[in-house]
C-alpha cells in the first residue's frame, strides 16, 4: 500500500527534526532535541516565578512548544506523535525551569499523560521541588462517567496556559496560579467535528475511513473517530452543532472568550466562515464574544475540521488574557 505523502525525512525522525527546526527558527527558545524539552532561552529573568510546564504527544502543534515563552509556559515536553512524553522528560524540564516558587504541571486528561505526569510529580517531590498538577478536561463530546477515561483535554489547554501563565508572570504563588488554571478549566467547554481522518507519519494510512458525504462528530485530537458519524452539512449547521453541544453543557450567557480552532488541514478561509456562524449562533443565545482566536492552535496533524472552545469571561480573566505574551504561536502586547 502506498503511504500518504508527508514533508518528512523519515517517520522515526519527524519529532526530532521538527524540534531542531523549532530551535533554528526561534532563538528565544532553548531546545534539547535529544531529550525533547523546549524551554525559554532567557530563563534567568524568572527568579521567584512559578514555573509552568506542560507537554504531550506531538502532532498538536503549535501546542505545546509553540506556547513556550514570556507570559505563557516555561517549558514543554514533546512525546512521540500522539504519545505522552515520559516522566524523565517532565522531571528534567521541571528541574531546569524551577525558580524556587514551585512547578505547575498543566496536563491534558488522557490516560497516558495523566500517568506519566503523576510519576514525574512523585519523582520531583523526591527532589524536594513542590509541584501541583491541573488536569484539563473540556471536551463535552465525552461523557464524563465511570465508563470512560473522562473528558479529553483540548482547546481549553491553550486558555489555561495563557491565563495561568500571565498570573505566574505577575508573581502569584503556586496555589493561586493552579487555582486560576482550575477555574479556566471549570468554566471552559469544547466540541470538535472532523471532515476527514488524519494520518500519522508512522502509520502512513488514514486513521479512519469516511464516505464522501460523511463527517465525524465529537472528535478528539488524536485522529480517533468521533462519537457518531453524520452527513456533511453547510458550515452554519456544523457551527450550530458545536455551539449547541458546548452551550448545552454549561451556561455561557454573558461574556466569553472563544477559540475557533482548526484541526490542521482546514484553511483559514473556512475557519473564518465557521467563526462567523459561531458568533452569530452565540449572539442569538445571549453570549457575547469579548476575545477570540481563529486559527490552528490545538491540532490533530493533517485532519480537516474544527473545534469550538468557550471560556466564561470575567474582568479578571480578560485582564490576564490581555497581558503580554511572546511565544512562537501567540504574541501580543510584548
Amino acid at each position: 500500500m502506498s503511504s500518504m505523502k508527508k514533508l518528512i525525512n523519515s517517520p522515526e525522525s519527524v519529532v526530532s527534526d521538527a524540534l531542531a527546526g523549532l530551535a533554528a527558527a526561534h532563538p528565544g527558545l532553548t531546545v534539547d532535541v535529544e531529550r525533547r524539552i523546549v524551554r525559554r532561552a532567557a530563563h534567568a529573568s524568572t527568579a521567584g516565578k512559578v514555573a509552568l510546564v506542560s507537554g504531550g504527544g506531538s502532532g498538536h502543534e503549535p501546542l505545546h512548544a509553540g506556547f513556550v515563552g514570556p507570559g505563557m509556559l516555561d517549558a514543554a515536553c514533546a512525546g512521540e506523535v500522539f504519545t505522552s512524553p515520559v516522566p524523565d522528560q517532565m522531571l528534567a524540564a521541571a528541574q531546569a525551569v524551577d525558580a524556587g516558587a514551585g512547578v505547575l504541571f498543566l496536563v491534558k486528561n488522557y490516560t497516558g499523560d495523566v500517568l506519566n505526569f503523576q510519576m514525574a510529580a512523585e519523582l520531583l517531590e523526591d527532589e524536594g521541588i513542590e509541584s501541583r498538577s491541573v488536569l484539563i478536561n473540556d471536551d463535552v463530546a465525552v461523557e464524563d462517567s465511570l465508563y470512560t477515561a473522562g473528558r479529553r483535554g483540548t482547546g481549553a489547554t491553550l486558555f489555561a496556559e495563557k491565563i495561568a501563565g500571565a498570573l505566574a508572570e505577575r508573581g502569584a504563588d503556586l496555589a493561586a496560579v493552579a487555582g486560576v488554571a482550575e477555574r479556566v478549566n471549570a468554566t471552559s467547554r469544547s466540541f470538535g467535528i472532523a471532515l476527514g481522518p488524519c494520518t500519522t507519519p508512522a502509520a502512513g494510512q488514514p486513521s479512519f475511513q469516511l464516505g464522501e458525504d460523511e463527517i465525524e462528530v465529537g472528535i478528539g485530537i488524536h485522529g480517533e473517530p468521533g462519537r457518531r458519524r453524520a452527513p456533511m452539512a453547510p458550515a452554519a449547521e456544523l457551527a450550530g452543532l458545536a455551539v449547541e453541544a458546548v452551550c448545552a453543557d454549561l451556561d455561557f450567557t454573558g461574556d466569553a472568550i472563544a477559540l475557533v480552532n482548526g484541526m490542521g488541514a482546514s484553511p483559514l478561509l473556512e475557519l473564518y466562515v465557521v467563526y462567523n456562524e459561531v458568533q452569530a449562533a452565540l449572539k442569538s443565545r445571549g453570549v457575547s464574544i469579548v476575545r477570540n482566536l481563529v486559527g490552528n492552535y490545538v491540532t490533530s496533524l493533517d485532519m480537516p475540521g474544527f473545534s469550538v472552545t468557550l471560556c466564561r469571561a470575567d474582568a479578571d480573566l480578560v485582564d490576564l488574557w490581555d497581558a503580554p505574551v511572546n511565544t512562537p504561536a501567540l504574541r501580543w502586547g510584548a
Partner: peptide, 12 residues
C-alpha cells in the same frame, strides 16, 4: 519501559 514508551502503556 517507563522511560522509553510514553503514553499509557509505558507506565502500565
Amino acid at each position: 519501559l517507563i522511560s522509553s514508551v510514553g503514553g499509557a502503556s509505558g507506565p502500565l
